[in-house]
């Protein structure tokens, strides 16, 4: 039941992407997101996808592993596509039947939303696949450390993230055990409507919560007994250092943005594509 979850799953191989500084990778993710959002021509998206494949190749993570991240959205994506397709009415009418109308604008928007979501999710999962949770939170802590000046609890936030990520597999395992214990007592988790199903989750959620609170208390004790007192004066075993490859990576991603901007301003093919489709359908503007 919980086997599909790839959230925060690290794929342990050695590659350029794995060796990059986590701070760099976080910045790269931001640059990538910027690139994904400034695309306004569908065909330029092909370029983004090619870049995505290039990053995957550089990370040595199997492509189907990266694509697994899309799986939880298998309901959301078609829904978003259809909603946008039928609700947005702009541009030319491609197709119309009774109350259903498909316009060029709607089709464009629908394609965009799906491609954007896929690009974002795969990009983000590539980050977690190539970065251990510990170095990811350390990167985040260091990246946000300027905020300490305004009393923002950066270290505490990073520690909470580390702990949360650390306990995801533990919780999944425990949920599985609790589920078995309740199934053995005749709990029915599958039949009935949505309200019945939600109610059937109570015998699983309560032990899960109770055990989590107990574990949290034990963890706090264990940390305190090892003199943990927050981030002040805390040093690192491995100090993060930037390398040349980090600079190169940022330059490549900056180039991506530049290329996207130049391509879509020089060759705005979309505008003509609409005319082309209409021409093929034998309709006049």
């Amino acid at each position: 039941m919980f086997k599909d979850i790839t959230l925060g799953q690290y794929f342990p191989v050695d590659s350029v992407a794995h060796r990059l500084d986590p701070r760099t990778k976080l910045v790269l993710l931001i640059l990538y997101i910027v690139a994904v959002f400034i695309v306004k021509d569908i065909w330029v998206f092909g370029f983004i996808i090619a870049f995505m494949l290039f990053m995957t190749a550089m990370s040595k993570v199997p492509l189907n592993y990266v694509l697994k991240a899309i799986k939880p959205m298998k309901l959301l994506l078609p829904l978003m596509f259809l909603l946008n397709l039928f609700m947005i009415k702009s541009g030319h009418i491609l197709f119309s039947w009774k109350f259903i109308t498909v316009t060029t604008g709607g089709l464009r928007q629908a394609l965009f939303i799906v491609l954007r979501l896929i690009a974002l999710v795969t990009g983000a999962s590539l980050l977690t696949l190539t970065t251990t949770p510990v170095s990811l939170t350390e990167g985040l802590e260091r990246l946000l450390s300027p905020l300490k000046a305004v009393k923002f609890p950066v270290h505490e936030l990073a520690m909470m993230m580390t702990i949360a990520l650390r306990f995801i597999p533990t919780l999944l395992e425990e949920a599985d055990k609790i589920m078995k214990a309740q199934l053995a007592r005749g709990a029915d988790l599958e039949s009935g409507n949505i309200f019945k199903k939600a109610k059937a989750m109570i015998p699983i959620l309560i032990p899960l919560f109770v055990n989590s609170f107990r574990r949290a208390e034990e963890l706090a004790l264990a940390m305190e007994s090892r003199c943990y007192h927050g981030g002040e004066g805390r040093t690192r075993l491995k100090v993060l250092k930037f390398h040349m490859r980090d600079l190169w990576a940022v330059l490549i991603f900056a180039a991506l943005i530049a290329v996207v901007v130049i391509l879509q301003n020089t060759f705005p093919i979309d505008r003509y594509a609409a005319d082309l489709i209409l021409g093929l359908l034998g309709k006049k503007q």
């Binding site: 055990k177 309740q182 053995a184 015998p203 309560i206 032990p207 109770v210 055990n211 107990r214």
Partner: peptide, 18 residues
């Protein structure tokens, strides 16, 4: 078949909830 077999797990914390 399951109704005939009662299963007690190692840790009671996994089943007490009410």
């Amino acid at each position: 078949g399951r109704a005939l077999v009662g299963m007690v797990f190692q840790y009671p914390d996994y089943q007490l909830f009410d």
